[in-house]
Amino acid sequence: MMDLWIECENCYELNYKKFWKSKMNVCEYCGYHLKMDSSDRIEFSIDSGTWNPMDEDMISLDPIQFHSEEEPYKDRIDSYQRKTGLTEAVQTGTGQINGIPVAIGIMDFKFMGGSMGSVVGEKITRLVEYATNQLLPLILVCSSGGARMQEGSLSLMQMAKISSALYYYQTIKKLFYVSILTSPTTGGVTASFGMLGDIIIAEPNAYIAFAGKRVIEQTLNKTVSEDSQVAEYLFHKGLIDSIVPRNLLKGVVTELFQFHNFFSLTKNERN
């Protein structure tokens, strides 16, 4: 029976699964934005027939021979690849948004909590470099638990690598990068490219933080209020520029690009 319904994690009402995807995973009772996988996001945001994936065959090795009690890192990667049909926790590529050519990277929380290892970092860096060379506007949709501990300091290195590629893209080439923060965006992603957008947009009620609530409370012995790591509070404090519901996002991004002199291709150019 539950195959027909999806329970909202905010109000616990049941949403009819048949209409779930067309409603962009937004609860019809309370408007809460539930997680959305990267393939669905591509389908909703990129004009149909224009998506061109990049670096799909890049997969993680086990650079520090990480061994845990549960299962070897390599086996864990294999099982997530089977489960999600993805090779890694980010999909990158080019496409058009209302006819405007863009470079876009979309993280996927279903793949190891969207954690950022060497491959995620390399794919995003290559995307930024491609956008720099082709003078394309850039979108990164963030959804991540942070840097991937199974790759140690190599995963932390990705923060600096992506940030330096973005510095060249934004400061030297004066191109335009929109960062879209979805729930959750935490750890090393928040501490690097998530917060480097020329415009930073968050989805309503998105959980955005560096360290999680539990970690802060255990470290400082202080209680962290429930709403202090929610998009609306961070917007109030000036950390993000705008909160945009999922169904309006494509239109808002299109207007931003037009405002920054990126226009849609003519019919001939599209062909």
Rank of each mutant, 00 (worst) to 15 (best):
160 A>P: 09
248 L>S: 13
176 F>I: 04
222 K>M: 06
138 L>Q: 01
253 V>G: 01
207 Y>M: 11
178 V>H: 01
90 V>F: 12
118 S>F: 02
258 Q>Y: 12
243 I>W: 03
171 T>I: 13
80 Y>L: 04
252 V>R: 08
107 M>R: 03
89 A>Y: 06
143 S>Y: 03
80 Y>A: 01
59 I>P: 03
160 A>S: 15
56 E>K: 00
207 Y>C: 12
141 V>N: 06
124 I>L: 03
40 D>E: 13
33 H>Y: 12
176 F>Y: 03
153 S>A: 12
6 I>V: 15
175 L>Y: 02
114 G>W: 01
212 G>T: 08
212 G>N: 07
165 A>R: 00
25 N>S: 15
140 L>H: 00
220 L>S: 10
21 K>A: 10
223 T>D: 09
187 G>H: 03
121 G>T: 15
87 T>K: 14
223 T>E: 09
132 T>Y: 04
145 G>A: 13
186 T>L: 11
36 M>N: 07
234 L>D: 03
51 W>H: 02
102 V>H: 08
234 L>M: 13
4 L>I: 12
199 I>D: 05
249 L>W: 04
154 L>A: 07
80 Y>C: 02
44 F>S: 10
123 K>M: 14
209 A>Y: 02
245 P>D: 13
260 H>T: 13
143 S>I: 04
259 F>C: 11
103 A>F: 05
12 Y>S: 14
86 L>M: 02
125 T>W: 00
211 A>Y: 10
77 I>H: 04
63 P>Y: 06
207 Y>W: 11
194 G>M: 01
219 T>K: 10
57 D>F: 01
232 E>I: 08
242 S>N: 14
148 R>I: 08
37 D>N: 15
104 I>P: 04
28 E>T: 11
168 Y>A: 08
45 S>T: 12
192 S>H: 08
246 R>K: 12
91 Q>K: 13
172 I>G: 04
66 F>L: 07
82 R>Q: 14
230 V>E: 04
146 G>W: 03
250 K>C: 09
261 N>W: 08
88 E>D: 14
153 S>Y: 13
93 G>W: 00
107 M>Q: 08
220 L>G: 11
242 S>R: 15
58 M>T: 05
191 A>R: 07
254 T>S: 15
77 I>C: 07
209 A>V: 05
71 E>Y: 01
90 V>P: 00
52 N>E: 12
205 N>V: 13
118 S>R: 04
118 S>Q: 06
200 I>T: 07
253 V>D: 01
3 D>H: 14
11 C>E: 05
135 L>P: 01
237 K>H: 14
147 A>M: 07
37 D>L: 10
180 I>P: 01
224 V>Q: 11
40 D>P: 09
68 S>V: 15
96 Q>S: 10
162 I>E: 00
219 T>V: 09
179 S>T: 12
162 I>Y: 00
128 V>M: 00
84 T>N: 03
232 E>R: 03
42 I>Y: 02
96 Q>M: 15
12 Y>K: 15
198 D>G: 06
105 G>T: 03
23 K>W: 12
88 E>A: 11
229 Q>P: 09
140 L>N: 00
233 Y>H: 14
181 L>N: 00
137 P>C: 06
183 S>M: 00
52 N>T: 10
192 S>Q: 11
138 L>M: 02
120 V>E: 10
237 K>R: 15
10 N>H: 06
